[in-house]
Structures are given as structure tokens and as C-alpha cells.
Design a protein around this nucleic acid. Sequence first.
DNA 1: ATATAATTGTTGCGTATGCAACTAATATTT
DNA 2: AAATATTAGTTGCATACGCAACAATTATAT
Lengths: 146, 146
Amino acid sequence: MNQDEHVHSLGAMIACLHRHNLRYLSQELEIYGIGGGQFRFLLALYHVDGIRPEELSRMLMVNRATATRALKRLEEAGYVQRAPDPKDRRALVVNLTEEGHRMHRFIRQLSQKRSESMLAGFSEEEKTLFRNLLERAISNCVRACK
Amino acid sequence: MNQDEHVHSLGAMIACLHRHNLRYLSQELEIYGIGGGQFRFLLALYHVDGIRPEELSRMLMVNRATATRALKRLEEAGYVQRAPDPKDRRALVVNLTEEGHRMHRFIRQLSQKRSESMLAGFSEEEKTLFRNLLERAISNCVRACK
DNA sequence: ATATAATTGTTGCGTATGCAACTAATATTT
DNA sequence: AAATATTAGTTGCATACGCAACAATTATAT
């Protein structure tokens, strides 16, 4: 199977999915005063509340600058709070606020809803496989640009 | 399999792949005076030279504005030319220049190389399947936001 | 024929993001 | 202890992109 036979490169397909996702999330989150880009930070914080921005950025594989901006915006919107880490005054500690915790169910459902929409018509095996292939592709990318 | 069990949402994984791709392409294309975002337009033009920007944007599933900018930059860099369509003076016709044609081999190899790098360790079945699953996911997205 | 609608491309504005340079703080070396 | 290196976060600059408003043109309706 030669890549040249396809009009769409793999990258183009991935970019397309990414854009659609971002648009969807942006629309759903607009009433909460945050953008689609903040979604995954919020989602991650339900797993690892009390984390540092730096660790969060490594976890989500984004630039530190991106984490700074996303967390700043989430703070301005009232969903997280950033406090200096007493053990290391270079660092911050990010915590969900009351309001942030209240969004838990909504955020999870949004994630779920999005996945279901994107994977409509996929069998359970295909869903698992898709995720597995994505993970391996990411590993390849990370390894390649190390 | 519950989505909630995963730290990374599907969207986060796709976003990650997208950014790695863009970075890779940007680096490779820098010496040619164009950015990673122009890549897929150039690639598409080897299939459908002489097309209108509007059709190209539908084909690549991007906004018309994005096509305008990408083609403008490709024109400035000398790889395509835009001329008014004599049959419809609202429209333009995009053609590859000599220089644009000369990049053909390089662009295709770049696409190939990128795919191989991203899909390293995938069996032929997995490669085909991955592409198939991506296509179906895109269809779902397109259908959902129609 | 004229008014209205639809289409094509452009541009301003906003968002998400990376990179590189910077500051402040901590860790390591000498 | 002092000099140096590393780390965490921030900010300016750049790119890619979508949306909405706009102008010019063409198509359709009246």
C-alpha cells in the first residue's frame, strides 16, 4: 500500500479530526467561559489535582507556555487556583476550585460524548484498537523527535 | 471500556499527533520558505492541479480563509500561481509553477517518510486499518456537525 | 429587467500552540 | 561560599486555523 495513492496524507486526516474536536469542545465550553484548548487540562486535573504546571505539561505533552496560558485562563474563569509551592518557590501547585470540582461530571460526560460521536459505528474491538494505534503512533513521534 | 479510565482523551492524543506532524513538516519545509501548514495544499495540487481554491478547501476540509492564506504564501514562495478564472470572474484557478512541479518528488517523499515514521512498527494490516478508522472517525465528525 | 440570493475570495479578529529569551529560584560544581 | 548549571514559569513573537463580515460576481426569483 503506497501512501502516494491517497489524496489525504495521514497528517491531513489527523489535522482534520483535531480541528473538528477543537471546534466541538469550544462550542460546548463557551457558556462556561473557557475555550476548547482548556478542556484537556481540566480533564487531567480530575486525575491529578494538586499537580505542578510543569508536570501537567509533560503529561499532556504540550509546551510549558501552553500550560501557563491554559491554567491562567482556567484560573480567571474560576475553575482552578494556582498557589506557590512552599517546598520549591520556583514552582506552582494547581488545584481545582469548588467550581472546578462541580464541573467534574460535565467534563467527563463531554469527553465521553465526544468519543462516542467520533467513534460511532466502531465495534468495541475497533475502539480499543484505534486507541492502541494512536498510542503507538504518538510513541513513534516522541521517539523520533527526541 | 470506559473513556473515563484513560488520562488522555482521544482528542488529546489526536492533538498531540497533529502538533508533532506540524512541527516535523515545518522543520523540513523551512529551507523552502514555506511552513508546515502549506504542505497538504501542495500535496493535493499534485493530484488536482488547475483547481479552484474553494474546491481545494472543501477537498482538504479546511476553511476558505485558510486556503486563501496557504495559497497566497505558496504563491509568494513561487510554487503556485493564481489566475482569475475566465469562466467565472469570482473564482481563481490555482496552478503549480515550474518550481512547484520540481518539488513533486520531494513532497511525496516527505509524505511517505512522515507516514513511515509515524507508523513504525505497524503491520501492513494495521496501517490499512488505522487509515480506515481515521476515515470513519472523520466521516462521523463531518456528519455530526452538518 | 430588476431585485434578491448564492457563491468566491479576502480580511480582521480571536484561539491554540510552539520556540526562544527572560527571571527567579534551586541544585551542582569548584 | 561562590560560580555555574538546571529548573519552573512567563512573555513576545510567529504560525495555523476558524468565524464572520465584506466586496465582487453570478444565479435565481419575481
